[in-house]
Design a protein around this nucleic acid. Structure first.
Length: 198
DNA sequence: CGGAAGATCCTCT
DNA sequence: GAGGATCTTCCGG
């Protein structure tokens, strides 16, 4: 069913206690589960403490407190009055935004939550995947190796795309968005100028 | 205390 | 491709 070793305990900490860019690349191809629902991570973005686009840029606050938690914790936030987004915490003030999944497990439940049955659209965006997986503020600031969360190592993609992050105005040119080349489950195509790393 | 911004999504044209 | 929905948080006055 669910192949690959689950990341837990010291291994989870070691995986996330690295530079957020490295973590964002490494997460591509990993399986992210919330309860019995989840899929393969195909798109991520890295954020840093000295990064004007990052929620942690102005230091800790009530909203972003989880982003200063331990490596391997989850940071959930609400955006535009109606959507949730989920991040994995790396070093303090650094995190990786999970932007898109390839749906695998619990597709029927995802479709019900999303009120939609088009597979490619179920998890092709940070707000969409949170809706599909049932993530909201009650699941903020928890550990990735504790239920309902689970993360499994997967095969690295054949090729990785790199480009500018989506939807930000500050530090908008930093190439800190990563995706599985050729995936049809991305939130948006990468610009033609994006670098592909074999 | 008010206001504006915001790591988005959906429905049109 | 443009615009509206919708609301919490934070900063400035």
């Amino acid at each position: 069913m669910i192949g690959g070793p689950a990341l837990a305990g010291d291994a989870l900490t070691a995986f996330f206690a690295r530079d957020a860019e490295e973590v964002a690349r490494s997460l591509l191809g990993c399986r992210f589960m919330v309860g019995m629902v989840g899929g393969l991570i195909v798109e991520t973005e890295a954020y840093f403490p000295d990064d004007a686009a990052s929620h942690s840029f102005r230091g800790p606050s009530k909203r972003n407190a989880a982003m200063f938690g331990e490596p391997g914790n989850v940071y959930v936030y609400h955006i535009y009055g109606m959507h949730w987004c989920v991040n994995f915490v790396c070093r303090p003030g650094s995190a990786v935004l999970i932007r898109a999944l390839e749906p695998e497990q619990g597709i029927a439940e995802m479709a019900e939550r999303r009120k939609l049955d088009a597979l490619p659209a179920l998890c092709s965006g940070p707000g969409k995947l949170c809706q599909a997986l049932g993530i909201d503020l009650t699941l903020n600031d928890r550990k990735l190796d504790c239920p309902p969360y689970a993360l499994f190592k997967g095969a690295a993609p054949v090729a990785t795309m790199v480009g500018p992050r989506i939807g930000i105005t500050k530090n908008a040119d930093a190439p800190m968005r990563f995706g599985v080349a050729g995936s049809r489950y991305l939130s948006k195509p990468f610009p033609k100028t994006s670098v592909s790393i074999p």
